[in-house]
Every structure is written in structure tokens, then in C-alpha cells.
Write a protein that binds this DNA or RNA. Structure first.
Lengths: 342, 342
DNA sequence: CGCCGTCGTGACAACGTTTGCAAAAATGAT
DNA sequence: ATCATTTTTGCAAACGTTGTCACGACGGCG
């Protein structure tokens, strides 16, 4: 009862096991009448097709792996996951998450043992840098590899990324156009050795500032604080320690910008009255606190990546395998034309 | 090359397939020398044990299902997921998420077809009410069912829940003890037909108020707004429309409290100067905005549930199958003794 | 020197599906 | 009716493992 197989169903329905199999996987190939018999027998016996057996026979596991480095519950990661799930769930796929790629040890172990090998049909690498040895190892799983926000995607079968540098360039330019003279970029330090695509944002900031400093009377600087739980507080302290408080702040991400806005308020710095601030992500609460920010849509990226994966699994080549998406400036209330009167 | 089987490895290593199998699953049973031969052959051939084949043979799928109703990326759900993953990943299990249980249609389909049947070793039901028909159906998967924050858990094999009613009772009592006279409870309306454990919080609020209204000069009311994206804004509007602004607000959840604190500020209501407010969850940013709240630890709940599941899968009975956890009052800065002078 | 226990290994039969091939049944045209 | 199609069905051989059983080698013991 608890474990009926296709054989039992066949017996009860009075047909062969092939017919039962077809009734489930290729219903168009069996007559209406037989299908009904099979289905009701299956219902009676609490039967469903076993995915494991199917996987064994067909070679398709109907699983994919999502590798991630950062905190598993981060807003961005979960949206990507949801996007993948939107597409893959309907296609009959399950997604296994691998978060245990955080420490150097765990990484090493993961890329040596490759536990996903022969157990997934595709691998998604989400938002962390990976060195050439790791890429080489990963290739040994012999399934499509899709990168999401990965610095160097050239080695993967497909990828979708945000244009981090261009996005921050635009954000910075917006601040400059508003007439600000003293802009600081706050970011948390890059992890040792591991390059992340988020680090490109700083480059965009610097490029925009350098491009503008000839024409404008512009003072700019980068404030890099240690990564970890307290990075927003560290940034706050550093900001307040500055000789002169800036008239604009450009944040590496909303998770930096949001606490900053809230806490600076307590020190008498109100936006947009006293300074402009811009975030990056358009994450939850950005809207609530009226934060101007660069929007990226990680869920859409997930869906996009999933579609590419499905194509690759089917043996086709997706149209534009490597896609770069431009983030969009979302104007809200945390920026304003710089008041020269001050 | 891309798909070596245990047979190929056996050939290269010059041993039988049984030995290869044992080298992986019961390494203690094969000699050091043979194991090395096998492992190096496996490495050469890019081989890993196929989970599907193992699952087929052993009857264990090494997968579990996590059913959820609410928005997949909600903080709470993701923390629960992370907690499950903490324990289950190490035990060799993968977690498949089922979010497509949102509309009545999808629910019906899910509980009729039971796609998880024969494909998982356990089912977790996370934070949504489920009617008796659905429970009956779910039982037909014939694997352990573990509830997480489910109103009536009696039908499950195990469960872990927050004591929502008692938690909100405590929160309300705290507000009353602070001397507040006019307390409103803001919540989003319960979904039609589907009872959620979160709805118990309202009962705790009412109970605390009723218990206190004889001794204190207490005025209280429940403000229930339509569910959906805009619920915090609706609550804000309703609050401002009140004849008299309350001196204390009790929120069903942090996601209600946080926007309220931020937006009320703009209307000149500052906490704790003008009113006290208390949340429920201790979600991200609660700390940033200094919100006093009832903390629950969903990640720990996930781990707890996972351990129970592992026991059940192994055929044992977990110690206390049904556990209720008390949330804790986290005192921060959004509450104060009511200033009678006002 | 024979007996027994232990250890390491191999043979082989499952586990529950899918699928190519061929046979049987139903349908249509004459 | 007959024959030519087309639709529906059954047979049987995989797919890649695990686990039971049995066999040989080895060492200790009487």
C-alpha cells in the first residue's frame, strides 16, 4: 500500500506496465478508456511515477544545482532562486541549493568531490567569483553551467549579469548632474581572493568621477569598510568622522544605504534636505524610506537564466547565451538638486 | 567520458562493481589499497555515485519537500529553509520547494496529484493552514509530515511552532505595564478560508486587553486592513484617520511595524516620544530602526524540524514530537513609559 | 597440522521505470 | 467481406546501483 509500483497498478488496471508508463508520460498514446482505468487504479493504490527510476532510465535527473557563496537568505539570492523556480518548477525540475561554499575549506572540498556530478542536469553559479582551477573542476560535471552575476563568464555555457559598473556610473553621474561637489562612495571591502561582480560598481563610481572632475568642482572619495554584519555602522562612523560631511553619498548597495539614511537622521543629517543618497538594488524597504536607487530585477534574471538552462539541457544553443542587463535608475525622494546656499 | 558508470570504474580499477560501490558507501569494508585504486579510477573517469540509482535501489530518495503558501522570498520562509538546509544538507538530503500552493486552483491540483509522492522522504508544511481534506490527501504520500507554524498540528507526525498567541499576549501586556491607555492592534486580514497561525496573535492581544481593562483605564481596538502589498500604507491611513492618535501600537508583524515607524515620523509622530510601538518577528532592519519586538528564530525552528524529520525517516520517534517555542521580548528603543503629562 | 573465525572480494539478482519493436485491435475504403 | 492503414497495446531489454551470499586467503589456536 505504501509503496505500489507500476507493476501493481498494471495488475489492478488489467493492462501491461508499458501502458501504465505511457498513461503518465505520453497520455496521447493511450486510449481514453485505458487511461481512465490506469488513473483510477493509480489513485486507489496511492501511486505516482518514481522520479528516481525515471532518472535512472532516461539519464535526466530533473534536478539542477544552485551554487552560492554569500549568505543564503540574502534578498538577492532568494529572488534569483524564486526566478529559477518560476521557470524550472513548471518544467518539472527541482533545485538543490549549495551554500556550503563559504569557507576556503568548504570550497576546496566542494570543487574536489563535485557532489553534484551525475546528480544534476545543470549548474547555476550565483554571484560569486570563481578561480580558474574551480572552473576547470566544475567543467568535469559535464552538464551546462550557467553564471549569474559572475565577473568572468567566458568559461560558462551561458550567463546573465547586471552591468554593475555601468549602473554605478549612471548613479554617480546622476548625483554629479544634480550639482553635488563632495561625493563619497561607501562600500564594504571585497573578500580576500574571491572577486565578486559587485566590486565592479566601485569602478563605475571612479570612472564617473574622473570623467567629471575637469568640468566640475568635484571632490570625491571611496570609503571602504570591513565586510561583516556591522558594515553599515562602520560606514556611519567613518562618514561622521570626515572633516566635512559630504553633500552626496553613493552606496554600493541598498543594504548599506538604508541603515545609513535611518541612522544619519539621528545625527541631524536629513535627506534630501542636507544631502543626497543613492542606493543600488531596489531591495525591500527602499521604497518605504523613499530611497533613490538603481533597480535590478534578480527574479527576472533567475527566470532568464533558467530558460537558457532549459535550452542547453535540450541540446540547443540559447539565442544570446551571454546577456548583460542594464539596471535602471529609480527616482525617489532621497536626492535633490544641490542647494548652493546650503 | 561524460557518463562513466560504476562498471567502467570497476574495469579501470581492476575490481568488481561491488567493490567500487563499497569503496564509496562503506569505505571501512574495503582495504586501503583497493580503495585508493578505486578512488583514483573514479577521479580519472569523472565518476560519482548516481543518486538516482541509489534511490531506486534503497528506496530512500534523499529528498524532502518544503511546502509553502506565502510569498516564497519572505524573510521567515527563507530562514526556515536555511535552518532545514543546515541540518539536511549535511545529512545528504536535498530540499525541493513547492511554492505553487498559492491559489485555490493550484492547491487543489497539488493535493490531488500529490507530485511529491514517492519522490521525497519527508514533507514539511510551512506556515499555512491546511484543511482536513488536504491533510487526508497529504497522508497518502506515506512519509513523515512535519508542520512548522501550523495551527492544528495534531494530524502530523511532528511539529514545531511559535506560541503566537502567548507571544502577542506578552507584547501587549508589556505595553499595558508601561502605562499606555489607548492601544491599537494593526494587522492584515486573514486570508479567506485559510487559517494561518499568525492569526492567533490577535487573540493574544485581545486576551491581554480584556484581562487588563478592569484594573486600568484602557481603551483598545483592532485595526484590520486588507492583505496585499499595500497593507502597511492602509494601516497608516487608518491610524491617521482615528479620532485620537493612540499612545501605543501593537503590530502583527515587523513588516507592519517598520514602515509604520518610518512613515509616522513624517506625520510628526515620533517614537518613543509620542507613542510606543512593538513588532513581532525581529526581522531584518528591526534592529536598525531600534524596534522593540517579539523575537522568533525561524532558522532554529527549521533546524529543529529537520532533526525531527531525520529521526522519523530513520523510523524512530522524536523525543517531543510536537514542540511549541516561546518568542522572546527584545527591548529596544521604540517603547517607553507612558508620559501622563503628554 | 587441521579447525575456525575474520576479512576482503566477486557474482548476481533485484529496484521501478522507459522505449524500440512487433503484434493486435480498431478503423476506413472498396 | 477484404485489405490497407492507423491506433493501441505488450514484450523484454536495459539504466546504475545495493545487498545477500558464498568463496578464498590468512592468522591464531589447540
Amino acid at each position: 500500500m505504501a509503496k505500489a509500483s507500476i507493476r501493481d497498478v498494471a495488475k489492478v488496471a488489467g493492462v501491461s506496465i508499458s501502458t501504465v508508463s505511457r498513461a503518465f508520460t505520453r497520455p496521447d498514446l493511450v486510449s481514453q478508456k485505458t487511461r481512465d482505468k490506469v488513473l483510477s487504479a493509480a489513485d486507489k493504490l496511492d501511486f505516482n511515477i518514481s522520479r528516481s527510476a525515471t532518472a535512472l532510465k532516461t539519464g535526466q535527473t530533473y534536478r539542477v544545482a544552485l551554487l552560492m557563496n554569500e549568505e543564503i537568505t540574502s534578498w538577492f539570492n532568494m529572488e534569483v532562486f524564486a526566478g529559477l523556480n518560476d521557470v524550472l518548477h513548471d518544467a518539472g525540475y527541482d533545485i538543490s541549493l549549495f551554500q556550503h561554499i563559504d569557507t576556503a575549506e568548504n570550497r576546496k572540498e566542494f570543487f574536489t568531490a563535485l557532489p553534484v556530478r551525475r546528480n544534476v542536469d545543470a549548474v547555476f553559479v550565483n554571484s560569486f567569483g570563481i578561480d580558474s582551477y574551480e572552473v576547470t573542476q566544475l567543467k568535469r560535471v559535464h552538464v551546462p553551467i550557467i553564471g549569474i552575476n559572475i565577473p568572468s563568464t567566458s568559461n560558462f555555457d551561458a550567463s546573465v549579469s547586471i552591468d554593475d559598473e555601468e549602473g554605478m556610473f549612471m548613479a554617480t553621474q546622476h548625483l554629479i548632474n544634480l550639482g553635488h561637489h563632495h561625493i563619497v562612495y561607501t562600500c564594504s571591502q571585497a573578500a580576500e581572493g574571491i572577486e565578486s561582480s559587485i566590486d565592479n560598481r566601485g569602478r563605475g563610481f571612479i570612472r564617473a568621477c574622473k570623467a567629471a572632475e575637469h568640468n566640475h568642482d568635484l571632490q570625491w572619495q571611496v570609503l571602504s569598510v570591513p565586510r561583516g554584519r556591522e558594515f553599515a555602522d562602520s560606514a556611519l562612523t567613518a562618514l561622521l568622522a570626515l572633516d566635512e560631511f559630504p553633500d552626496a553619498i553613493c552606496c554600493q548597495m541598498d543594504m548599506m544605504a538604508i541603515p545609513l539614511v535611518l541612522k544619519l537622521e539621528r545625527y541631524g543629517h536629513t535627506t534630501p534636505r542636507d544631502y543626497s543618497i543613492i542606493g543600488f538594488d531596489d531591495s525591500p524597504y527602499a521604497d518605504t524610506i523613499n530611497l533613490t536607487t538603481m533597480r535590478q530585477d534578480p527574479r527576472a534574471m533567475g527566470r532568464n537564466a533558467a530558460q537558457k538552462a532549459l535550452k542547453l539541457i535540450a541540446g540547443e544553443t540559447p539565442g544570446n547565451a551571454h546577456e548583460t542587463i542594464q539596471p535602471q535608475l529609480v527616482l525617489r525622494g532621497s536626492d535633490a538638486v544641490f542647494n548652493h546656499a546650503r
